[in-house]
Structure formats: structure tokens, C-alpha cells
Nucleic acid binder design. Structure first.
Lengths: 346, 346
DNA sequence: CTTAGCACTCGCAAGAATAGAGTGCTAAAA
DNA sequence: TTTTAGCACTCTATTCTTGCGAGTGCTAAG
């Protein structure tokens, strides 16, 4: 628990500074700590300790005569070994539960609702990443005729996700034949992950092996066209305007770079999924998130689990100066909630 | 063409001021006009004319020693009777067409792509409102079993839109029975607008009349649950970060109120659909849009048409100081494009 | 090792001075 | 009668100065 280089006083002081800075968004002076934190030390002593912490790289000075501000490294230590978990209040838990109560529990709605809940309760940005479609297991497939050249393929996944896709078909395919194809596809492909189905459908040898039919058969064509899917995850974002209330984003410039990033959904998807380990909670502090234009933001993320042993990610994006214990608890609890939801329903 | 109260000189001057202000975002002085617009008049004369225009309510002064800025009323006159339509260049038309080329032409993708195209080419915010689901005509309905208590209802609309919905069903409904119900529902309900179907499904008398079965019959339950749909339109927004490049949004405050509105999709939906007349283009200048927090923005919108005689709306939201002729042409052309797309495909 | 005291640094806010852009008005010119 | 040159006046934006206050670092005493 105790970082080797830091004695217990340095710990306490660093924690106090992080805490104070998080609340005020202003550099913390030695005076301020004496006044607010009653730790039985004089300002001068604190100044010495603070100077030490600065030398170790945990604090900085905006300028000579200003108070101290935690560095990313300082936050790192704080998050890893200083902060004490802050349990969510009964109220807050209830708020999260209520958020899901109204939803009709379909897949998309849960995703959307989650991003809303996360942002509403954290007062930061809530983000949800759906599980990668390719990893999903096909539960069932339905082909619906649209016109003579197109059908709508409805892919129902084990996770509860649904993917609609318009597919071109060979002309003059009768309804009966379509129905027959539909039945065969379900027989042979249901239960397999999409990734594997895709491989089969693009590989003539495998395709032939699975269906035991010539490649010119309509069934081969339909399969090929239906499963020529791109990799795909959806990103749900909510609460972007919460950023305006933080004083450190007082200048348009800073907020601009952030918003430009947020509009690039792929970047956000990368941000949430990179080096994600299943079922752990992770905190990326400041530039650790590796996202250009988001250096002054931290990300708290966690994976969640849906049926079919698949994982998605939820997260909160906020200023580096966020109340980590609270946000961590929120993300943790919400990811549990959502995993449970997917377990019990659908 | 000529507004009664304004002689031809006032026209020219007003147009010049609007044009100049649109380009520079700064109050326009008499000097500036003499220099840039070669209209054979001295600065003093222009000042007189400008004073007249101000008295008529078409211009204002930020302060005594500043240049003139068009009022909303001024813009109104400009848009209604002064500006000359600016044809899109071949390049621009091609840009729009190319934007659709890649899309696989399913309903959602066209919507999404349209908002992207609009924002990319206008450098403002692109918005698309899908047709109201209730007005859509049901083309076909497919019921897919999920588990013993739920099915997935896939509603395929005449417009090409698809709506998935998880529906609770009576327990122990056999697959055969579900299939039978599915067939009957298609027979009786396909071709009707959802609104009407909803009425039928919620009204015991009508329900009985249509299906000629007791209300306890599973078919009645499934119908009721499937068509208990809320009114629903989707809003697609893109290009929000474009707003940062406009100098009039240099202060965080102004941009904040705008972004808070943009996060409220319902408000945007209202904004686009209120008093919309089919197939016309409309320009709402400044506070005319009636949306709190968007007083400094104008909206150029147009409806588009999908199969089944339904209408949706597309629009561009930008600062009041936008290049109206260009934006109007963009919106007009795009709405034609999208109508054509829906005509030919799907 | 801690702390009081003090000199020193630096940012920030308030004021003062200045420059300059633009207007309105008046009187002369067309 | 309309246009224009000229000029006084107004107001903003910029720059510079000044003073204040918050904070630190260092030193010497407790």
C-alpha cells in the first residue's frame, strides 16, 4: 500500500493536495492545507515536504509564487495507493437502478441509457462501447424479402444485439426458396461466432464443405453477401456539455480540441478498448490515454460482460482533476449493473 | 422583388453590408464599403444611407463609434428578396454524390451519411430528421422467437426504415403458432400506417373486428404489445465542432448554451419540424427558430420525401452570419438527392 | 527536526494614457 | 436637392504602470 519512496507524511500531504485541488481547481498553498486539513504541522514544514514532493516529480508549480498542483505522476500514485474507495450512497445506487427501470431492455436501449446514466451521475462524459460484432455469437438469422433483388437479413446475437442488413440476392428467388435457405442457414450457422461465419462465407472450400452444395447455388451467394460484415462496434456518448462547467476549460481552445476528438467515434472506441483487460477497472490519467487533444482528460473505464462471453467497455471521461474515488465507484457499480442486466434479461 | 420601403440604393447597400459582415464577422464601416464595393458613392453618402437603414430597423450599432451590423430583420430582407441564388459548383455536386456512393443504401446509413455530408460541405452543423415512425406504412412484419417469453418484432416500413422491438408474449406459444400469427398479422396489417395499426391494437372493438377473434387470443396480445409504439423520430447530427472556428463564438458562454441545446435531441427535432411545410426550403433567422440558447443561430431546412408519401427534414444550423445563398443551395440540392435516393433504391 | 520570520517573486486587477476607427453633423460643392 | 469633404466627438482596444496579495524559499532560532 505504501509507495517505497514516500514516507507516511509525504503520503498524507500528497493526498491532501490532490483532494484540495480536485475541489477548488486552483493551485494549493501551504497555508490552505494548514487551514483545511489540521495535520498538526506548520506551513513552513509543509512547504519543505511539498518541495520534496516536487523534486520527486509528484507536484509542480505553475509559477514561482503559486501553490502546488499534482502532476500526472502524482495522480498516478494517488490513484494506485493513496485514495480510499468511496462507497456510493444508497441514493446514488438507486439513481442508477432507476435509470434502467424504464428501459424496455433491448440491447441498444441499455447501451444508450448507460451512457446517459454515467454522465448524469458523474457530471462528466459517459461513454459506452458495445461488444465487437465480430466476436458475437449468432443466435438466429431471419431473412425478409424486400423486393426482387434485396432482402433484409436480421441477425440476432446471443448477446441480445440485433444487426439489420440489406443484402442483394440473385433475381427470381422464390419465397419458398428463401424460406428454405433461411432454415438451412440457421441449422448450419447458429451458435457460431460471426467472425468464424465470415471466414466460412468468404472461403470457397469451407463454404462448400459446410453446405455441401456448389458455389453457384443461391445459398452460397446469400451467405456470402449476408456475412460480408465489417468489424463494428458502436459508441454511445452522453454529457459532453458537462465539460463547460469545469473552470479549467474556460478557454475555447482547450474545449475545442476535446470536442474535435469526441466527434471521431473511432478514436473514442480505440481509447476505450486499447489494452483493456477483461473485467478490471482501469484509470488512465492525462496523457496516458494516448489520445491527441485529450491530454488534460482522464478516463476511468471498465469492461462489462454480456451473454456469449463477450465484453464491451464503459467509461467516464473527465478532466484530470476529477474525484477519482467517486468516479471509480460509479463505473464499477454501473458495469456490474449492466452485466447483471444482460445476465437476467433477454 | 424590390421591397416597397427600400429604394434601389438602400438595397445595394444592405446587400453589401450583409455580404461584407458575413465574410469578416466584424461591424462594417462606411470606409470599408467604399474600398471593397466600388459603388461610386462617398463614405459620407453611405453613412447617410446606413443611418436610414438603421432607422428602418435593418442595421444596428454595437456602439457609437463602430460600424454597422445587420439585424435579424435585415437578414430577413436579404434572404427574402436581395440575395441571388448561388449555384453549386460541379465539384460540390460531385462531393455530395460521392458521399452517398459508398453507403450501402440502407435507411439508417443514408440518414447518417446525409448529416455528415451536410456538415462537411457547409462547414456548419448538419442535421437530419427521420420521418415520424407513426406516419410510416408497414410493409411487412416478422416475428422472431427469442426465448419462451420474448420475441423480436421486426417492422419493415414502406420507406425502407426498419424498427426492431422486443415484445413480451404469452408463455408456451409454440413456434408453429407464432408463425401462424405472423402470417395473419401480415395479411391484415401490412399496407396500413403504424398510427392506424396502433389505434386498432389499443381498441378492443376494432381489434376484434379486424381479427375476428376473442381478445384473450394470443394474436390479440401479440398485436397489442408489438404496436404499443411511442411516437418516434431519430435525429442525426454532425459537425458540431465546426462551430469552434467561428469568431463570434470566441467565448465559452455562448458556445456552451448552444451545445446544451444540441444535446437535447427532442428540441432539435421540434426545431426542424415545427411549421414545416412539405417540400419547401425555409430559412429561420436568429431567434425566429424559437429555440432558447440558439438565438445567434440560423437554420436552413428543407423536407425530403421517402416512399410511402412521407416526409422527413434535413437542415443546416450555423451562425446567423452564414453565407445564405450557398447554404440554401446546399440544402436544396441535398434534399433532392436524398429524395431521389429513396425513390430509386430499396 | 520543526517553525517563525522575512525577503523576494510573480501574477493579477485597476487605472491612466494613447491610438485609432468610425460616426454624425455642418457647410460647401455639384 | 443631392452629394461630399471636413471636423469634432465618441467609444474601444491596447499598452504601460502601479500596487496589492498570495506564496514561496531560505535562514536562524526553538
Amino acid at each position: 500500500m505504501i509507495t517505497p519512496m514516500l514516507d507516511s507524511r509525504k503520503h498524507t500531504v500528497l493526498e491532501a493536495i490532490v483532494d484540495c485541488y480536485n475541489r477548488t481547481a486552483e493551485p494549493v498553498s501551504s497555508q490552505k492545507i494548514v487551514r483545511d486539513y489540521d495535520m498538526g504541522l506548520s506551513a513552513a514544514t509543509l512547504r519543505n515536504t511539498m518541495a520534496d514532493l516536487e523534486e520527486l516529480g509528484y507536484l509542480t508549480h505553475p509559477h514561482t509564487s503559486a501553490g502546488r498542483v499534482p502532476t500526472e505522476q502524482g495522480y498516478r500514485v494517488y490513484v494506485d495507493s493513496l485514495m480510499t474507495a468511496q462507497k456510493l450512497s444508497q441514493r446514488e445506487r438507486q439513481f442508477i437502478r432507476d435509470g434502467y427501470a424504464s428501459s424496455r431492455r433491448d440491447f441498444e436501449e441499455i447501451m444508450e441509457q448507460t451512457s446517459k446514466i454515467l454522465s448524469a451521475i458523474s457530471h462528466h462524459i459517459g461513454v459506452v462501447l458495445s461488444p465487437e460484432l465480430h466476436e458475437s455469437i449468432l443466435r438466429r438469422l431471419e431473412l425478409i424479402s424486400i423486393d426482387s433483388e434485396h432482402i433484409l437479413a436480421v441477425l440476432l446475437m446471443a448477446s441480445g444485439a440485433v444487426k439489420n442488413q440489406v443484402v442483394s440476392i440473385p433475381k427470381d428467388l422464390s419465397d419458398e426458396e428463401l424460406y428454405r435457405i433461411n432454415r438451412i442457414l440457421n441449422e448450419r450457422l447458429a451458435g457460431l461466432p460471426l467472425k468464424q461465419i465470415r471466414q466460412i462465407s468468404q472461403d470457397p472450400v469451407k463454404l462448400k464443405a459446410v453446405f455441401n452444395r456448389p458455389l453457384s447455388d443461391p445459398i452460397a451467394t446469400v451467405t456470402r453477401n449476408t456475412f460480408a460484415l465489417e468489424q463494428e462496434t458502436h459508441v454511445y456518448i452522453d454529457g459532453t456539455s458537462n465539460f463547460f462547467s469545469h473552470p479549467e476549460f474556460g478557454e475555447v481552445q482547450k474545449i475545442e480540441s476535446l470536442f474535435r476528438v469526441l466527434e471521431q467515434k473511432e478514436q473514442i472506441a480505440d481509447l476505450l478498448s486499447s489494452q483493456q483487460e477483461p473485467l478490471g477497472i482501469q484509470v488512465l490519467i492525462g496523457s496516458e490515454n494516448g489520445c491527441e487533444g485529450m491530454e488534460m482528460c482522464s478516463v476511468v473505464r471498465s469492461s462489462y460482460r454480456v451473454r456469449g462471453n463477450q465484453f464491451g467497455t464503459i467509461g467516464v471521461i473527465g478532466p484530470t482533476r476529477m474525484v477519482y474515488p467517486r468516479i471509480v465507484s460509479i463505473v464499477k457499480f454501473t458495469s456490474q449493473m449492466i452485466s447483471e442486466l444482460f445476465e437476467e434479461s433477454l
